[in-house]
Each structure stands twice: as structure tokens, then as C-alpha cells.
Design a protein around this nucleic acid. Sequence first.
DNA 1: TTGAAAGCGCTAACAA
DNA 2: TTGTTAGCGCTTTCAA
Lengths: 330, 330
Amino acid sequence: MPTIEDVAKLAGLSPATISRVINNHPYVSQEKKDIVAKAMKELGYVPNSNAQRLRRQKTETIAVLIQRIANPFFSQLVESMDIIADRNNYKLLICQTNNDKEKELKYLNLLKTKQIDAVIFASIENEWSIVEGFLKYGPIIFCNDFAETAPVPIVCLDQYKGSYIGTKHLIDRGYKRLSYCGGSKATCLSRDRRAGFMAAVKEAGLNVSDQWLFKDALTIDDGKQILREIASMDNRPDAIFTGSDEVAAGLITEAKRHGITVPNDLGVLGFDDQPIAELVEPGITTIHQPVRKIGIKAMDVMIDILVSKKKLEHQFIQLPFHLVVRESTR
Amino acid sequence: MPTIEDVAKLAGLSPATISRVINNHPYVSQEKKDIVAKAMKELGYVPNSNAQRLRRQKTETIAVLIQRIANPFFSQLVESMDIIADRNNYKLLICQTNNDKEKELKYLNLLKTKQIDAVIFASIENEWSIVEGFLKYGPIIFCNDFAETAPVPIVCLDQYKGSYIGTKHLIDRGYKRLSYCGGSKATCLSRDRRAGFMAAVKEAGLNVSDQWLFKDALTIDDGKQILREIASMDNRPDAIFTGSDEVAAGLITEAKRHGITVPNDLGVLGFDDQPIAELVEPGITTIHQPVRKIGIKAMDVMIDILVSKKKLEHQFIQLPFHLVVRESTR
DNA sequence: TTGAAAGCGCTAACAA
DNA sequence: TTGTTAGCGCTTTCAA
């Protein structure tokens, strides 16, 4: 592998001048530029990134922390982020935490070891008090889920309003015995979403049996499982608010096997508006999240921080979202 | 940020000894080990990866080239690879080429610039003759799609057999007017898959109208579009072989709108066996690909190459797959 | 506009 | 078992 020194020798110039050409510094004569370009080409020279990184103390790499890449929400989010990052010559390091606090810390450590310049949390496992300490090694922002007290930019949706609107829809359609599936973690996202549901329920003067509150529902299989539980109840809910279209799809599929008719016996509300929502039958009434927009916005914010070196400050950027009515609710 | 030198000073030892402790070298007394550990902890020291990489000429990072992470096939593949990589202390750099030759080359260049140690192609855009030149910068293997003549390990499925089995199934169920959707690229995967289809068709003495051959079908929307084309034909096929469950799902959904009954008016065969296959109605008869197994196997092969520094050689590792019969075929 | 030289933080050959 | 030292390949200050 040729080094900058080899190029310098071949060009009859100093390494410094070669470096200037590589980095587009001003004050290099066109003549030398040409000579250098020729020499680089002849040798097939490419700068060694690790040497550059060591010297510059920058990696041009941003880590994105997510739960699982196979979750369509995250894969779409990451895809949109990648487009913006790439356009600005940043690379994305996709970090799957799998709901594991240790793994999250391991990834955060990349900031310390200078393997990444910054971190975007799209899901978070540890308490902010633990994450906080990493702020001195590089910028951190949130996107989607977040830690409320963090003094950093947060790009998200108004989960409270979202689930309020969805729940209100169920109530308006005459459902009275509402069930709720949420995540397991005590994150802001889960909390707000649940609060929105509860607010709408309370406002309508409805009662929610504890039996109808489900936790840890994320996948298609979780949805199926929940339906089986519902089927075995004496006191069944007549509608269910889920945290994702996958769960809703699982519920709908399994409902058919149990002779439960959606939307009449059971109204089902999804979340996300994934492609799957319009493929199952009945189509899933769901709360549309502008996934890609969140990804793009978050990456824009991060690039801006990195480029303009501006200080982090607490800031809430909330994007709008809306209800998509299909056939899984009356 | 403390450096190895700071630790050395605090511990009253040389940087070399600190380095030995970091890297678990033999011939360090337990006593010194303890002193060093204490000093590192006190300073909150972490080795600078870029310095290590520059010195060692290794990054412990493997690039995986895929089309799009939002494609469930690829996101599952990547997820399974990541588990194995992580277990061996390798990081994965996910590179979305978006079917763009230039982007692929850009990512390959990371090999030259020492930002990655190796490359796994899960989809390929450029000719092997172009990629070949990068072999001298690090190991390259294929997984899923591949370049046949490449003298490197290839982990894949027998696409020919797969589509043959699927097509045979359609024929056995009495379908006689078969349509085919394939990818657009002239890759080995596309070619073999098509050849398997053609072989089964020919064997059965059936005729395939050119009108029934579709290209570039990848997404749900592509499936819908194709169904619309079929609906407008005078001479309709009675079954269709698709390249993915997404396309199949699009076809099925759109068929309902056009009063075409699946599986009676039109048999639909998917590919992959994604979760979606059992959620749509009718469920999709499909060719199951052991995605995760491919990912795990490919990563095992790569890690082995990297660890044992063995030379690359042409080797075909084919994994089995099978037909899953649901309701989209008679 | 160019060059000399120091040093980013680490590892490993060699010496002790 | 430990230390000294020479780089890995690059950028940047300072001087010319």
C-alpha cells in the first residue's frame, strides 16, 4: 500500500503538499496539484483513514441505537437516516441493543474509544443518569423514544396526542370495553402513549379492567398470544389498542381461528401504519407515524450539530401524525 | 482524555506494560496487572481505537453490502449476522447500495482506506471483473447472491432447485398458464431462479407467453401493478411465480379489487416465507428461505477466514430450503 | 506557496 | 518479566 510519503517522492514534493492537495487546502499551485494528482493515480494511492482519524480525532461515523433492525419501524428509520448521512459523507453504525442495557453501554463506549463521533438514540435502555456521562465524549440526541430530562435535542412524535386520537376513535365508534397493549419499559414513549389512552378513556367515563391491560407486546406472535388470552376471558373487551401493526396483525389473524369477528366482536387499532396494515384483512385502522420524516429530521439535526459545532441544548421537535381508518374498527 | 502514557505514569510503569495488560499478553505479573487495572480505572482510561487500528492495521469491522435495509429479507439477514459478529468482537458496517454501482464501489473503497477488514456481498451490482481488484485489500465472500466465477466462498441456496420445486407445485396443482416475475439484474440468483422455472415448465410441455414474463418486481406496489396488467389481458395466466412474498402480497390484495379470486382464478406463489405470508388472506404458498441460517453461516465462514487467516478459495455452501403450502394455490 | 518536523496514541521488536 | 524505542500514516504549525 502506497503512503503519502511514496506519493511525495514520486511527485518530487513534500508530504505536506500532498496532504494539502488531498484536503483541498488553499495556497497550492495548480501546477503542483496536477503533479500530485498524477502521482496519486499512478500509485493507486488512497489515504489511510485510521491515520487521518488518529490525527484529526474524528471518524465521520454516527452510531444509531435501535432495538432490532428486523423491526420494520427501525429499518425504515435507519434507511432514511442513512440517506442523509451518506449525502453529508457520514457513515452510519447501526447498533442493535436487543433491549440489553449492557450492549447499549458497550456501544456508547465506542464514543469513548473514538470509533464514532456521535450517537442517536432511537430506543433507550439505560437511565439518563447513566448515559449522561458520555456526553463529554461527543454529541448525543434522541429520536422516537427519549429521556425527558436530557439537555439535548429530541425529535419525536406527540405520543400522548397520538394515542388519545386513536382511543377517541374507538370510543366514537361505540366501543366501550377497551383493552390496551403497551411496551414493557418505563420509557417516556410508553408512558405518554399510555397516558393518552387513559385520558381518553377517563374522559368518556369508561372503565378498564386490569385484566385488559397487556404488557410486552411487540411482535406478531405476541398479538396472537394476546388474542388467545382474550378468547379465554369471561369478560372480554370489545376493542383493543395495540402498540404496533404487527401486534394488531397477529390479533386479527388469530381472531379468525377463534371465531371472533373483527371489527364487530373486537375492534383493533394498530400503530405505525406499516405496509402490513393494508395487506391483512380486514385492513388495520392505525396511527400513522411519519417514520422517514423522523429519521431525516433527526439526522439533519445531528449533521448540523457536527458541522457547525454548536452546543447541545434541550429542544423538542415534534412531528405531526394522523389516524388512518381502515376496516379493523367499525 | 487520558492516554496510555498517563496510565503508565500513574502506575509507575512503562507504556509497554500497560499495553500488555490491555491486550492480555502473557508474562505480566499479577501484581503489575492489578496496579495497571487500578490506574486505568482511576483515570477512566480507554484505549483509542484509531491508534490501535493504525498500529495493528486492523479494524475489527466487516462490511455487509445489501440493497436496502428496509427489505425484510436483508434486515433479517443482517440481524443474524450481527449476532455472530458481535459474539466474536467484530462490528458490522451495513452498506446500502440501493442498486447503485457507484455506491457499491464507494463502499468497497473502505477496504482500501482500511476502514473495514472484509466485505460480505449479500447483493451485488458490479461485475466481478471490477470487484476482483479489491481482493488484494481484504477478504471478500458472497452470501445469497453471487458472482459465479469468483474464487471465494459462496454461501447460498440452490435457486434453481427452489424455483423448480415451486413451479412444479403449481403444475401439479393443475395450473397450466404460468406467469413469472423476476428481478431485473443479470445476477446468478436471478438467472438460476428463472432457469428452474423454465425447466419445470418445459418438462411439463407448457407454453409461456412472453406477455406473462415480468421484470423488476420487488415491492408490494410492483405486485399490485402487475396484477393490474394481468387484469387487463385478454389472455390471462392462471398462476404466477413471484420473486418475493411482498410481490405476492401486492398481487393478492389487488386481485380482490379486480374480482380475481386467488387461488382459483389465479394461483400465487411467493418466495422467502416472510411473516407477511401467513398474515394475508389467502395465506401465501411460498418457498421458505432459511434467511437467518444463511446469515449465520456466512458470518461463520468470514470470521473463520479472518481469525485463521486462511486463504480464500472457491467454495459453494448450499443450504436447503423447502416449499410451504398455504392457500394462495389450489 | 512550499517544506521540515513534531506528534496523534498505540504496539512490538529488541534489549535488559 | 519489564522497559526503550521506533514507527504505523497522516495533519498542521512554524519557518522559509
